[in-house]
Simulated scan of single mutants.
Amino acid sequence: MRTALIYIGAAITEIGGCFAVWGWLRLGRPAWWLLPGLLSLTAFASLLTLADSDAAGRAYAAYGGIYIAASLAWLWTIEGARPDNWDITGAGVCLIGAALILWGPRG
């Protein structure tokens, strides 16, 4: 449960940070948007170090599935574009993959 909360927090901070840069470069937002974006991306990287994993690469790989699902939630809630069936199916496949990486039996 702790790792899931860390990944959710990481997803929110990563997407928020990246969206700040997107807003500046693509939506014409002011350059000061970069400051909270950079702080958010720093929080993202810090949060991932707290994930329960024996290797950074495994933590990042499992996080990828959470990131994809969170990105679609962002698409819907922040950008107002509803994900379609292919988006939802793809996110489900990614979450299954993340679960296998996180909780798969290791000898």
Rank of each mutant, 00 (worst) to 15 (best):
19 F>W: 15
2 R>M: 10
44 F>E: 00
70 A>D: 05
74 W>Q: 06
64 G>S: 07
29 R>H: 15
94 C>H: 06
21 V>N: 07
104 G>V: 02
35 L>I: 14
92 G>P: 06
43 A>H: 05
65 G>L: 02
60 Y>R: 02
11 A>I: 00
106 R>M: 12
43 A>Y: 03
13 T>W: 05
62 A>E: 06
42 T>I: 11
11 A>E: 00
12 I>W: 01
45 A>L: 10
38 L>N: 11
94 C>Y: 01
18 C>Y: 03
69 A>N: 05
36 P>V: 12
54 D>K: 12
52 D>S: 14
41 L>K: 06
76 W>A: 08
10 A>N: 06
11 A>L: 04
50 L>R: 07
86 W>P: 02
27 L>P: 09
27 L>M: 15
35 L>V: 15
48 L>P: 04
24 W>R: 11
28 G>V: 08
55 A>W: 12
47 L>E: 04
12 I>A: 01
16 G>N: 01
92 G>A: 10
8 I>S: 01
60 Y>T: 00
66 I>C: 05
75 L>D: 05
76 W>Y: 11
78 I>C: 11
15 I>R: 02
18 C>W: 01
69 A>C: 13
17 G>R: 04
58 R>E: 15
12 I>M: 05
4 A>T: 00
27 L>I: 12
8 I>W: 05
78 I>Y: 11
72 L>R: 04
40 S>T: 07
